[in-house]
Design a binder for these strands. Structure first.
Lengths: 249, 249
DNA sequence: GAATTCCCTGAGAAAACGCTTAGGGGGTGC
DNA sequence: GCACCCCCTAAGCGTTTTCTCAGGGAATTC
């Protein structure tokens, strides 16, 4: 089931209308805090644990609809945590957090069961998107909930990563895609550069704030080029996307 | 829930009709007083604290709907205060106050959870607007509360920062926008130049008092130009905005 | 009706802000 | 190992915005 808030954001809900529950497991507290904040903002109910034992225990009575699980835990290795969690909650989808250099094939095996993974350092948009996908596919939320964002004649498919405007396919790089997704999930709403940076770039990004300007300009070149613009600058405030108003000629 | 006072101001209220509660945390007393006054004027219930320990303690039994938190506190740093506050009140939205130069350093993630921040020196209108936005989105107030101000045929959208009169879009600069917002939030009420200066300009503005006149004239040019005027001067008292009375011709 | 006070607005300087280009470095695939 | 693509830094440029200053006009007072 989905519902649309007054701001136009679409929320995932369980079939009985109660909020989706997510368990976050990571030993770094800053990570669990960051994730909890972001996921709560999605309207989900969050619990967190700092180690494997805590995770299993919390999972037992919290009965989450999805789990975010760091593969590197102090007390036991991610696999055995996973095993125990699965004993409690058989079908719950898991989003793994792994270091970039983690062994690929091991992860590949894990995600075969419909799970997914994200490498650290991640961006919040990425985690949220992956999680939404997992929950959607697991059937914990209404299956009809869509994975396609539409603003005007602009279309973005979160599953296939396809983007098109007015029927023409548009190729975007990974970062461009995430930026556009964030804009399109908040149409007609001014998003500050800080907000964009916090959601779209990884949490450890320490660079210049003008990357946002740069990527906005890339996006405009691909999306607005030669058409009525959809991406607008609010000087001193931020950017927003909205359906193009046909030129009155 | 929203209600409209006799003066025509729209107030945010909690779903049960009680006033919204806000906790203000800053070590400079002049700031907490300034903010407390301004926020009480919004019809909200305010408590303040001067350090992190006090903030956590006050939050515990005051149970605020939103928190204004200075990042620079004497006893502990803003983030650990945040952590403790969040342990007490999980979903409470936070508006951070930060120094301007601190923004670039290490404030990544502040807006990640739907929170927001304002840099010092700030204007009261900005703080109030941001807080209203946070409270609105957090669901502590009635979700139907709108983000659009309307006076006569003049319309101002706080989310998209769009302004239009009689259907025609009007482009305003950031300062013009804030001034108009302040006027429109107090329709049919005379606002003195001093009041306007205190609310719309940052508290450390040391310039000439006639900026207000200047910006009123800018606004008139954009909003009243060629139409029945909505912005009126009360000589010796101030300015007010009200729906235009159709010209009797 | 003259003086005074208050308000409005034009011009212009300084600063802030956003956009764009060029290029380096890292990673990936062939 | 080479070529390609992607991400980001850095710097320069043009534009927009903000504000000061000053002159003139309008309302008010005496």
């Amino acid at each position: 089931m989905t519902t649309t808030s007054p701001q136009g954001r679409t929320e995932l809900l369980r079939p009985d209308g109660s909020p989706v529950r997510v368990l976050v497991v990571d030993d770094e507290q800053s990570i669990t805090e960051l994730l909890s904040m972001a996921l709560r903002y999605e309207g989900w109910q969050i619990r967190s644990a700092g180690d494997g034992a805590g995770a299993v225990q919390t999972a037992r009575d919290f009965r989450p609809d999805a789990i975010v699980l760091d593969m590197m835990l102090p007390d036991m290795d991610g696999l055995s945590v996973l095993g125990r969690l699965r004993r409690e909650l058989q079908d719950v989808p898991v989003l793994f957090l792994t270091a970039k250099d983690a062994v690929e094939d091991r992860i590949a095996g894990l995600t075969a069961g419909g799970d997914d993974y994200v490498t650290k350092p991640f961006s919040l948009e990425e985690v949220v998107a992956r999680l939404r996908g997992l929950i959607r596919r697991s059937g914990a939320a209404d299956r009809r909930s869509e994975s396609v964002l539409v603003v005007g004649d602009l279309t973005l498919d979160e599953d296939s990563h396809e983007v098109s405007r007015g029927g023409d396919g548009i190729h975007l790089t990974a970062t461009e895609f995430e930026l556009l997704r964030f804009l399109m999930r908040n149409p007609r709403r001014v998003l500050s550069k800080a907000q964009i940076l916090d959601r779209v770039w990884s949490y450890d990004f320490g660079g210049q704030a003008n990357v946002v300007e740069l990527y906005i300009s890339y996006l405009r070149r691909k999306i607005d080029a030669g058409r009525e613009p959809m991406i607008h600058t609010r000087r001193g405030a931020g950017y927003l996307i909205k359906p193009a108003v046909p030129a009155v000629t």
